[in-house]
Each structure stands twice: as structure tokens, then as C-alpha cells.
């Protein structure tokens, strides 16, 4: 029953708190406190909190695995986790501080890229809640529907007409899935990658980098050329793995919560291929980043989010 338990746990928690794993208050917008973004406006930067959630998802799965001392994660432990108060879970499942600051850095880079490209936007701070993508991906349609109506309402309350997203999963879910579930969904959705411009073209010959296309950007949204153009404008020499663009290969991340060791085996398969092309791997999705990073030591590679390279 552990997988059903896991799905129920994440669904219930999302309905209750807005997020699928236990998180401390303010974790999703702390990165933006140094800015003074408007909280309302036609163009809204909506992160869907996926980057910010990564450290907490990671720590929860580590905690669960430790609880059952098994490779596959002790989801029976979820039964306990559900009844334990959030702050205690937070203490038990200590997120990696480096990962938290990485996620804040990425979001800061993205905000700066947008500002540099003279794009005016507002940000919802405490209302920048989760998009519900994991509930959708695991098949919990009912709770997903309840949650996304909440998200849509918050976005509408801020007078949003256009949404800027920062990761492929949130982009896809808002653009292609929300309209199927929400009557009158009328928001225009674009990834920040489609909006930013690189003006300080650097001709410096930088190290070659290998692009790991996100499955969702490449196959779900046909967003393939954009990251390449941005990186080459910045002066990087782009190397392509054999399985790239529309046949890009998954990092294994989406089943990390359900089946960690299988997820890792897939990440290794992918990293092996990437590492033969270059030791600098560029990702554009937090799930790809974390899953590939976990195996990067075995292959002498470093993984970077595209925003940090621009």
C-alpha cells in the first residue's frame, strides 16, 4: 500500500498546506524578499515553487528511506508521517542547505535575466504556491482539480493576464493541462526562456557544454531551439548528446519518490551518455538538475541550471 499511501499523503498535504511535502513558512518566496516586486499586475512571475521544493522533497525521501532502512524508501513510514505535526517532520527531515541556496540562486538569476531584458512583472510572494504538478503526474486527479482552482483564483486575484514560468513542468501544466480542468482559463503562459534576451553577447570562447533537454520542454512544448540560441549568444560551444531535442532521454526524476533506485539507474544511463560529450551538463529543470547531480560524481561531470550560465 505504500505507493497509494505516498500519493494520498502528498495529495492531502497539498490540499491542506498548498505544498506536497512538509515545508517551513515562507520557503517559496524567501528568495524574493530582497526585491520589492509588485504583488499585482498583468504579468506575473509564477514559480509554482518547484525549484524551492526540491530540497524538501529530497529530504523527505531520505527520511523515509532511513525510516525503513531500505533502498526503496519506507513508505510505510508515511503512515506515521501523516500523523506527525509538520514542524516535527521538518526537524526530522532536514533539507540540504546548499540545495536551498542553489534554488534561491537560480530564481534570483531568472528574475535578474527578466529585469535585464526590461520585462516588467509582479510576484505573488506568499501566494506563489505549488502548481500541483506531482498530483497530476501521479494520477490524483480529484485533489489536483481542487488545488489548481485555488491556484487559478490566486493568479486572477492578482490581475494576471500573462504568466511567466521558470520550469518545464509548471509551464506545461499551466499551459496544456489547466485549460482542460478549469472553465474559462484565460491566462497566457510562457517560460522565461522564451522572453529573455541576451544583449551582453560574450564572444569569449567558453568551455563546451552539453545540453540535456527537458522531456517536457522538448516533447511537450516543442521548446528546443530557444535554450540553444541563448547559450550560443552567451558564447558557449554547444555539444549535443545522441539522444537530444525531440528524442531527449529522461533523467529518471519523475519516479524518484516512488522508486528511488530505478530512478537512479535511469539517471546513470543518461549521465553516461552526457559525460561522453562534455563534463559540463546544462539542465533547465530542477528535477533533471537534482537527479543528474546525484550521479554526477561517478562520471566526473558538473551539472548547471541554464539560468546560472546566462
Amino acid at each position: 500500500m505504500r505507493i497509494r499511501e505516498l500519493i494520498d499523503f502528498m495529495g492531502d498535504l497539498t490540499i491542506k498546506t498548498g505544498y506536497p511535502v512538509p515545508v517551513p513558512d515562507g520557503f517559496s518566496y524567501k528568495w524574493a524578499l530582497k526585491y520589492n516586486f509588485n504583488r499585482e499586475g498583468k504579468v506575473v512571475l509564477y514559480t509554482g515553487a518547484l525549484y524551492q521544493l526540491i530540497p524538501y522533497i529530497e529530504s523527505l525521501s531520505l527520511y523515509l528511506m532511513a525510516m525503513e532502512k531500505s533502498d526503496e524508501g519506507g513508505y510505510i513510514a508515511l503512515k506515521f508521517a501523516r500523523s506527525i505535526p509538520r514542524d516535527i517532520i521538518n526537524k526530522l527531515a532536514q533539507p540540504d542547505k546548499k540545495l536551498i541556496s542553489w534554488s534561491y540562486n537560480v530564481l534570483t538569476s531568472i528574475a535578474n535575466l527578466l529585469l535585464k531584458s526590461k520585462i516588467t512583472f509582479s510576484y505573488l510572494y506568499e501566494n506563489d504556491i505549488y502548481s500541483g504538478v506531482l498530483l497530476y503526474d501521479m494520477g490524483d486527479e480529484e485533489k489536483f482539480k481542487i488545488h489548481i482552482n485555488k491556484v487559478f483564483k490566486l493568479l486572477k486575484q492578482s490581475n494576471a493576464e500573462k504568466i511567466i514560468t521558470v520550469d518545464p513542468h509548471t509551464t506545461y501544466i499551466l499551459k496544456n493541462v489547466y485549460p482542460k480542468y478549469i472553465d474559462g482559463f484565460d491566462l497566457e503562459v510562457n517560460s522565461y526562456l522564451e522572453l529573455i534576451e541576451i544583449n551582453d553577447e560574450s564572444k569569449l570562447n567558453k568551455d563546451p557544454v552539453v545540453i540535456h533537454d527537458s522531456c517536457i520542454y522538448a516533447r511537450g512544448l516543442s521548446l528546443i531551439d530557444v535554450p540553444r540560441k541563448l547559450l550560443s549568444k552567451k558564447g558557449y560551444e554547444i555539444k549535443e548528446p545522441r539522444r537530444n531535442k525531440s528524442i531527449t532521454y529522461c533523467c529518471g526524476g519523475p519516479i524518484e519518490a516512488i522508486f528511488p533506485s530505478l530512478s537512479k539507474a535511469i539517471a546513470k544511463n543518461r549521465m553516461e551518455e552526457l559525460s561522453t560529450v562534455s563534463n559540463k551538463v546544462i539542465t533547465m529543470c530542477p528535477i533533471c538538475y537534482i537527479n543528474l547531480s546525484k550521479v554526477s560524481n561517478n562520471y566526473n561531470t558538473e551539472v548547471h541550471d541554464i539560468s546560472e550560465m546566462l
Binding site: 522531456c215 529522461c250 526524476g253 519523475p254 516512488i258
Partner: peptide, 13 residues
């Protein structure tokens, strides 16, 4: 069985 699918859409291609 479906729960082990990554949703990566590679099969569609």
C-alpha cells in the same frame, strides 16, 4: 503498472 511511468513522452515519439 502505470504508476512506474515517468511521463517523459518518449514512447509517443
Amino acid at each position: 503498472l502505470s504508476e512506474l511511468c515517468l511521463g517523459c513522452m518518449r514512447c509517443d515519439a
